[in-house]
């Protein structure tokens, strides 16, 4: 039992630790631009190379304390400042770093520049775990190298799922800003709503039919088990008979309950608290969460002298 507790504590610890790591591991290098002449410019009006990161998870990720580098042998080249609220990247959102070797321009300006052939790495806050890496190919002016779809594709530097994009999309979706919402798509594919209605009703019925079948089955098993447990008793003729609990009608239970109730009523004219006949199971095993039971209620005192 003691071992089990230790295992549980260790398990919780493991989950907590991996959960932190997991959130940073949701960050992806998403798009990179090398030669910026007329593209997006920074807050200082300068055209510089940029690296776009994308949070592919559905939770906010704080990248403060993580690292960006263009040197696989120096994973801690640029530390993203901690404690800055703008390093908290919202779910499915992008952020842009300027590779301008000008870290004094702010949080999002790295202390290195990038060139074709270099490998760009995003490293988690432990300074060892490489979350994502990509080798930057040669590209033309104002062309960018990005993932086909945000966050999707290789994270081992193999360039699978990456391409030279037709248009740059700093801080926004790579797969097209004009992507239609599900609702708009639905309007085109199903203008009268019949397809969705039929699909949805089929799913609702499917779920309920499976549930019904499952409980039909468990019901049968339960009845079978109940039949096995039929009580044996002796009738007034002295013959042993079997009673099937499932054959007893609700009215019989009601009559028994009424008889017990009347019995209690008749015996409740004394001053001492009357006994309570109950079918409820009261388990008094000790637990700090249920210990109130001992302090709030005392076991009724049975007056043995009373007849």
């Amino acid at each position: 039992m003691k071992n089990l507790k230790y295992i549980l504590v260790l398990g919780c610890l493991f989950v907590a630790l991996t959960a932190t790591a997991q959130s940073q591991s949701s960050m992806r290098l998403n798009e990179i631009l090398l030669h910026n002449t007329t593209d997006f410019q920074d807050d200082f009006g300068q055209h510089n190379a940029w690296i776009e990161l994308f949070n592919e998870s559905y939770g906010t990720v704080d990248i403060g304390g993580c690292y960006l580098t263009n040197d696989p042998n120096n994973l801690k080249k640029y530390i993203i400042p901690k404690g800055d609220v703008i390093t908290k990247i919202k779910p499915r959102q992008h952020t842009l770093f300027w590779a301008d070797n000008n870290p004094y321009h702010g949080t999002f300006h790295t202390n290195f520049t990038i060139e074709a052939g270099q490998e760009i790495l995003f490293v988690s806050s432990d300074g060892r775990t490489v979350v994502d890496r990509i080798v930057v190919p040669e590209m033309g002016e104002n062309e960018s190298f990005g993932r086909l779809k945000d966050g999707e594709g290789a994270i081992d530097g193999s360039q699978q799922g990456w391409h030279i994009t037709n248009w740059t999309s700093p801080s926004t979706n790579n797969s097209g800003v004009d992507e239609e919402s599900k609702s708009e798509k639905m309007r085109e594919t199903d203008p009268y709503g019949w397809i969705l209605s039929i699909t949805a009703m089929s799913v609702v019925f499917l779920a309920l039919i499976i549930l019904a079948m499952l409980f039909k089955l468990t019901g049968r098993i339960s009845i079978k088990n109940a039949n096995k447990k039929t009580a044996k008793t002796v009738s007034i003729t002295g013959k042993e008979i079997q009673i099937d609990a499932t054959d007893i009608a609700g009215e019989t239970y009601a009559a028994i309950a009424m008889a017990l109730h009347l019995y209690n009523e008749q015996n409740s004219s004394h001053d001492e608290e009357s006994l309570v006949v109950t079918m409820a199971h009261t388990d008094r095993s000790y637990s700090p969460w249920s210990s109130k039971i001992y302090t709030l209620r005392q076991t009724p005192i049975v007056n043995k002298n009373k007849k």
Binding site: S197, A200, L208, G219
Partner: peptide, 21 residues
Amino acid sequence: SNPKLLLIGGACQFGIFGAYA
């Protein structure tokens, strides 16, 4: 105790999709 009654709960969802259309 009577799982087939589940299906009635399913049928009433036609109200949702009727109104949707």
